[in-house]
């Protein structure tokens, strides 16, 4: 796909946020909070950074690959896949409904283009992405594997098993991003289970760590991803600590775990949509 310029990426982000809210509202279930917080990241990846084919080949040979470990933020992924042509935006009307390809959590079972592995049970995505990255190395395929995880998700032990492995095996075609929104279901991560110094932890595990301090600013997100990309191929896996705000883009949702997994009411949806320009046409 063609690389979209900054102002276009910002426009797409606004539409993606509308899509997220409208999908979650329609079935009164799903996870808007971190979907909104990760919108710039997804749009930057799919419309600017990754080399990928929206005709979708499961094996993704000679393409950059993306895996979503924190599968509950499926709404943002579905919106971005639809808007980049993997399937028709119309299909977003089926989100979380019976017989849909847009399952509550991403799945391969129904054959939705763009999805290569099921996720939803936290802590597994980094292992999968690392395996996929190593498979590319075996094949002499020099493209990059991306994976996104939650920050609460860092509490799962498997994340650290994979972290140790990827550094040990010099999986340097791998860029892992952490959605560092400092929130999880039961509250702020600091209160639930303090992550302490994540940057120091990943560095201690042998990763190259960069921080994107403004994960909801498109220019900063692009810059971070460029920097991460430049660090690949140097013997170490790369970690991008992406500082975001849960619920970004909607004033009454921003910065709180309360919107982790609940849907807006009719009035709340109208209010939220009033804050987000319809740039590509609602589905």
């Amino acid at each position: 796909m063609e690389k979209q310029p900054l102002e276009q990426l910002t426009k797409i982000s606004s539409q993606v946020r509308r899509d997220i809210l409208r999908m979650v509202h329609a079935v009164q279930s799903g996870h808007p909070g971190a979907s909104l917080g990760c919108t710039e990241f997804f749009v930057a990846l799919y419309f600017n950074q990754m080399k990928h084919d929206n005709k979708f080949n499961m094996d993704g040979a000679n393409e950059d690959l993306f895996f979503l470990s924190n599968g509950h933020i499926s709404p943002v992924w579905y919106a971005v896949l639809a808007r980049s042509g993997y399937f028709s935006p119309e299909e977003m009307t089926t989100f979380r409904k019976l017989d849909s390809r847009l399952q509550g959590h991403p799945a391969t079972e129904e054959g939705l283009p763009g999805i290569r592995i099921a996720s939803g049970s936290l802590g597994q995505g980094l292992s999968v992405a690392t395996g996929a990255a190593q498979a590319k190395k075996i094949d002499g395929d020099d493209r990059t594997v991306y994976v996104l995880m939650g920050d609460g998700e860092q509490q799962e032990g498997q994340v650290w098993e994979a972290a140790m492995y990827a550094a040990h095996h010099k999986v340097d075609n791998l860029i892992a991003t952490i959605d560092f929104n400092r929130q999880q279901i039961d509250g702020p991560t600091k209160e639930v289970m303090d992550l302490k110094d994540l940057k120091a932890k990943w560095e201690a595990f042998g990763w190259e760590v960069i921080e994107t301090k403004q994960g909801n600013d498109m220019a900063a997100v692009l810059e971070g991803l460029e920097k991460a990309k430049a660090l690949t191929g140097k013997g170490k896996p790369v970690l991008n600590l992406l500082h975001t705000e849960m619920g970004f883009g909607v004033d009454f949702m921003v910065g709180t775990h309360k919107w982790h997994g609940i849907a807006p009411s009719d009035e709340q949806l109208a209010n939220a949509l009033g804050q987000l320009e319809e740039t590509l046409g609602d589905y």
Partner: peptide, 8 residues
């Protein structure tokens, strides 16, 4: 459990 789907 409903809408969350098969993973859960």
């Amino acid at each position: 459990l409903g809408e969350d789907g098969a993973t859960h």
